[in-house]
Amino acid sequence: DHDVVPEDKFQETLHLKEKEGCPQAFHALLSWLLTQDSTAILDFWRVLFKDYNLERYGRLQPILDSFPKDVDLSQPRKGRKPPAVPKALVPPPRLPTKRKASEEARAAAPAALTPRGTASPGSQLKAKPPKKPESSAEQQRLPLGNGIQTMSASVQRAVAMSSGDVPGARGAVEGILIQQVFESGGSKKCIQVGGEFYTPSKFEDSGSGKNKARSSSGPKPLVRAKGAQGAAPGGGEARLGQQGSVPAPLALPSDPQLHQKNEDECAVCRDGGELICCDGCPRAFHLACLSPPLREIPSGTWRCSSCLQATVQEVQPRAEEPRPQEPPVETPLPPGLRSAGEEVRGPPGEPLAGMDTTLVYKHLPAPPSAAPLPGLDSSALHPLLCVGPEGQQNLAPGARCGVCGDGTDVLRCTHCAAAFHWRCHFPAGTSRPGTGLRCRSCSGDVTPAPVEGVLAPSPARLAPGPAKDDTASHEPALHRDDLESLLSEHTFDGILQWAIQSMARPAAPFPS
């Protein structure tokens, strides 16, 4: 592969990997390779389809078979030569091979799209000592099968071997295949498990690692696999990028399955594409389908809103127990993405979901129960707010008499603000006073009005108090039968009158 990737590009890729991570280095090298001529790309395919690569990765054979028959990708048995050289000459001794072996032994695996480039050397060096003999053996194999790289107009793939297949390693990572398949204008990513390549439709969760975000852009890794992070704060999961590491605690105790298979379609829109997988259930989501939507993949363990709600429900009964003089119970939860139609709101002032922060849900004790107040519409209280300059209440639009249902020339009671006709409430011909108009209920007259088809109010509507207090003497005590009587009149003013009279009014101040 030294004929494909020059030394300066190799060093530039290593520097970019240390600065921005393996995914960015892979993407940059792939983009550079696509700008080369067809001879360089053909050399790339020839390096990929060597015999030892085909033996190690069985899924490469179907890719090789898909090439046109007129494309010669065979390799000479006596060494490598550029395709432009007409004579089959043995190339001179390859010093770059020693360079590659020494550099890969030092860096474990470079971040390139060629056999030198995919593992994360920093994480491997940190986690190597417990498994040094086995990992050293794996390093000797890295130059042979560490990076199976493929690129063409139909298929483009980048393979990364790992030393996680050490025997006896619980939940060992089998390997990473960062794979971009450009077929019919689409893009897919796969993962390699035990020599087999699994596409998103049959993606397997190998051991402790999972394909957290099938994305090839942005600074985030394709698999949430930063070796420096180790395990999740809650004892979460091992990262795919942690090559040759000792077994780590796999999943939280509440995880239903340690080796679950995540779905390959969004649980909201039932469509495929780039998904984020939940650590607590097999569901996966688009970032845009979450509520609120996320802009980037959160670091650490992530769970959907259903799993978060289940966790909150487990903690909430203990938080609601009476604990005198104790601060509110704080339950730190990872930043969760909410699927459509589901929402768990945190306290005000918290950062938005999706940031690399930890939301704190506070379970406050329930407030003391209070008697429910009568629910009145805002339009129902409008007549009470229509007060004239002299303190006389004006008529609201649409006000109707509670007896006849007519809204023409209605009066407004100064005591309960109900609309009424003087002739309907006082049919006996009582003279109307000039000021202080009161309806039949507030004036103490319980004589029913002779209106055909309208039920008369119940005599129990009024329960006047002592006459010594004029204001308190007109406080009506309405009961269920009074409400039914008012409802039978089918008037809004009657219902409003009952609601206003049912509310307690402050006692009249004593004259000074």
Rank of each mutant, 00 (worst) to 15 (best):
E342I: 11
A428F: 13
E320S: 12
P347A: 05
P509N: 01
L483R: 03
Q243D: 11
V315W: 14
S306F: 07
V246L: 10
S441R: 07
G398W: 13
Q313G: 12
K261H: 05
A380H: 08
F510I: 02
H363W: 13
I276R: 08
A508S: 06
C281D: 09
P509Y: 13
T357N: 11
H382E: 14
P322F: 10
G336Q: 14
L373T: 05
T311Q: 12
P372L: 07
S291F: 11
G453D: 06
E321G: 12
A319N: 10
P332V: 09
G436E: 06
K468P: 08
L287M: 10
G273P: 03
G272F: 04
S458M: 14
P322M: 09
A371E: 09
P368V: 05
G402L: 05
W498A: 01
N394W: 14
P298K: 06
T408K: 14
D377E: 11
P448E: 04
A456C: 13
E296K: 01
E314W: 13
A418P: 02
P450T: 15
A508R: 02
L290S: 10
L275W: 00
P367G: 12
A310R: 07
P298I: 15
R438W: 12
P253L: 12
C266E: 03
G375C: 10
A353M: 15
Q242T: 11
E296H: 15
C386P: 13
P293G: 08
N394A: 14
P324W: 12
Q309L: 09
P351I: 10
A370I: 15
A396H: 15
D469G: 10
G436C: 15
G434F: 13
L258V: 10
S305A: 06
A353H: 14
L359N: 08
E342Q: 11
Q497K: 04
A417P: 05
L437Y: 05
L373Y: 10
P282M: 13
T471E: 09
A371V: 06
C281I: 11
P247I: 10
E330V: 12
E350S: 10
P282I: 10
P427D: 02
R438A: 03
A284H: 11
E326H: 09
T435S: 09
P511G: 14
L455G: 10
S254M: 13
E263D: 06
A460R: 12
P427S: 06
P347S: 10
A371P: 13
L385I: 05
C281E: 08
L258D: 03
G388F: 14
T471I: 15
G429T: 04
V246S: 13
L308S: 07
V344R: 11
F420V: 02
Q257Y: 15
A319M: 12
P397S: 10
C401L: 03
Q325G: 14
P397V: 05
D264S: 08
S299N: 15
P282T: 08
C269A: 06
G407D: 07
G346Y: 15
K362F: 07
T435L: 12
D279Y: 09
P459E: 09
D482R: 01
C416T: 03
V410G: 12
V410M: 13
P466E: 04
D279Q: 12
P324V: 09
E314F: 13
V360N: 11
E263M: 12
D356P: 09
P433M: 06
G336A: 08
A460D: 07
G341K: 05
A399F: 11
Q242N: 10
P317E: 10
